[in-house]
Amino acid sequence: MADPRTHRIRFWTSAVTVAAVLLAVLLVPPLVQLDEQAVDLSRKLLPPSWDHPFGTDDLGRDLLLRCVYGLRVSLLVGLVAALVATVIGTAVGAAAGALGGWADRTLMRLVDAFSSVPHLLLGIFVVALFRPGVWPVIVSVAVTHWLSTARIVRSEVLSLRTRPFVDAAVSGGSGRWRVAVRHLLPAVLPQAGLAAVLMVPHAMWHESALSFLGLGLPSHQASLGNLVQNARSSLLAGYWWPTLFPGLLLIVPTLAIAGLAGVWRDRLNPRRRSELML
């Protein structure tokens, strides 16, 4: 178990990494005004240098620029998909827990039905319904990732709704809706928020997996999954940099976001808070 010093190091390392990534994806594209899709075959597969810190790909495109654009798309997919999945999961979980009875049984069987299908397979089915683009990928990730949030929120609500403060609200004239919105939802939102943050890296990986399989974004559009996919043939020919840098940019930000989520989880747990003297 991490001591307070390790906890602080983890927090600051994660926070600085996430801040650097956010600054890069928000500032680099408008500031440099370069076309990440500009092809220059005379410069193809150049190794990392001062001109091209990440090297160039097999079409002579600057990999640093493409990685930043790719990270931008992957982060957008991760954040929006995690947000949508959390909203769906919280609504379903809160409704199941607060209503109970047949509504709970019906909603949880729906969750079981979704869970019984491998979520990558379900995600592939969803993207296959649309033309390739960012939004089908977001929909695909969102509709396959709300299940765990629904379960977490339902179990929290089930535990809370038997507490005397809910009895007091019922006795004070609160209807089901008010009990849910005023007393139960605020109590489960920190857990749901944590689930959302933990879901962001997972959603980024899911986007990359779909793009790697050729089912996500159009192949010309920079995304981390597409970059890794396009670099496969180069890797076999001994050119390591088109695979390494997109791969690192997939791993490092996801670890940093997961690290921040871990710090948040520690703060939510009063026992851990006192151990860490937060």
Partner: peptide, 26 residues
């Protein structure tokens, strides 16, 4: 509980044994 008419529910005031669990912490 919720199924009882509100005017009947609110005709009875309740004070519970443990105030910590009977008060919404927020």
């Amino acid at each position: 509980r919720h199924r009882a008419p509100r005017e009947l529910r609110t005709a009875v005031g309740v004070v519970f044994q443990q105030p910590r669990t009977a008060a919404d912490p927020r």
